[in-house]
Measured scan of single mutants.
Amino acid sequence: TEEVEKIVRELQKRGVSQEEIQRILKRNGIDPRDVEHVVRRLR
């Protein structure tokens, strides 16, 4: 989703690792598959 993408991009800008990003998003109830998808697209 748009929202997830924004969050991921923001965290990446701050130098947060992929694993940490995924952990944060999972904690916020976001589907890990969505996270994977977004992270892969932004690489």
Rank of each mutant, 00 (worst) to 15 (best):
T1W: 12
T1L: 14
T1K: 09
T1S: 08
T1A: 09
T1P: 10
E2K: 11
E2S: 10
E2I: 10
E2T: 09
E3I: 11
E3A: 11
E3F: 13
V4C: 14
V4T: 04
V4D: 01
V4I: 13
V4M: 07
V4Y: 06
V4N: 02
E5A: 07
E5R: 05
E5F: 10
E5V: 10
E5G: 04
E5H: 05
E5M: 11
E5S: 05
E5N: 04
E5I: 10
E5L: 09
K6S: 08
K6P: 02
K6E: 07
K6G: 05
K6Q: 09
K6M: 08
I7M: 13
I7Q: 07
I7G: 00
I7P: 00
I7K: 04
I7H: 04
V8D: 00
V8R: 01
V8I: 12
V8Q: 00
V8M: 06
V8T: 02
V8C: 13
V8L: 08
V8F: 11
V8A: 07
R9Y: 04
R9I: 09
R9T: 05
R9V: 06
R9W: 04
R9D: 04
R9C: 13
E10C: 14
E10V: 05
E10S: 07
E10A: 10
E10F: 07
E10M: 08
E10L: 08
E10W: 06
E10T: 06
L11C: 12
L11D: 00
L11N: 00
L11M: 10
L11S: 01
L11K: 00
L11F: 03
Q12N: 08
Q12A: 12
Q12T: 11
Q12G: 04
Q12I: 15
Q12P: 00
Q12R: 07
Q12D: 05
K13G: 08
K13R: 10
K13W: 04
K13H: 08
K13V: 07
R14V: 06
R14I: 09
R14T: 07
G15F: 03
G15V: 01
G15Q: 04
G15H: 07
G15S: 03
G15N: 06
V16I: 11
V16Q: 03
V16C: 15
V16E: 03
V16D: 01
V16L: 12
V16A: 10
V16N: 04
V16M: 12
S17T: 10
S17F: 02
S17V: 03
Q18A: 12
Q18F: 15
Q18W: 15
Q18C: 15
Q18M: 15
Q18K: 11
Q18T: 14
E19G: 08
E19H: 09
E19L: 08
E19M: 07
E19V: 07
E20Y: 05
E20C: 14
E20H: 05
E20R: 04
E20I: 05
E20T: 05
E20P: 00
E20S: 05
E20F: 03
E20L: 04
I21D: 00
I21V: 03
I21P: 00
I21S: 00
Q22Y: 14
Q22K: 14
Q22A: 12
Q22G: 09
Q22C: 15
Q22M: 14
R23K: 10
R23I: 11
R23M: 08
R23V: 11
I24W: 06
I24V: 06
I24K: 02
I24S: 02
I24R: 06
L25N: 01
L25E: 01
L25P: 01
L25M: 06
L25D: 01
L25A: 09
L25T: 06
L25W: 00
K26Q: 13
K26L: 15
K26T: 13
K26A: 13
K26G: 11
K26F: 11
K26H: 12
R27P: 04
R27K: 12
R27V: 12
R27N: 11
R27W: 05
R27T: 11
N28R: 13
N28G: 07
N28F: 12
N28A: 13
N28H: 12
N28Y: 13
N28Q: 13
G29R: 01
G29L: 03
G29H: 04
G29Y: 02
G29A: 03
I30F: 14
I30G: 01
I30T: 04
I30R: 02
I30M: 09
I30C: 13
I30Q: 02
I30D: 01
I30S: 02
I30P: 01
D31V: 02
D31N: 08
D31A: 04
D31E: 05
D31H: 05
D31Y: 01
D31C: 10
P32V: 06
P32G: 05
P32T: 04
P32N: 03
R33W: 06
R33A: 11
R33V: 08
R33N: 08
R33E: 09
R33M: 07
D34C: 15
D34T: 14
D34P: 00
D34W: 12
D34I: 15
V35Q: 01
V35K: 01
V35S: 02
V35D: 14
V35T: 02
V35C: 13
V35W: 11
E36D: 08
E36T: 03
E36A: 09
H37K: 13
H37W: 07
H37S: 13
H37R: 14
H37Q: 13
V38H: 03
V38I: 14
V38M: 06
V38K: 01
V38D: 02
V39R: 05
V39H: 05
V39F: 11
V39M: 15
V39S: 05
V39E: 09
R40H: 08
R40K: 11
R40P: 13
R40Q: 11
R40D: 15
R40I: 10
R40E: 14
R41F: 04
R41L: 07
R41S: 06
R41E: 12
R41T: 02
R41W: 03
R41N: 11
L42W: 00
L42F: 00
L42Q: 13
L42E: 13
L42I: 15
L42H: 12
L42D: 12
L42N: 13
R43Y: 11
R43P: 14
R43M: 15
R43I: 14
R43L: 15
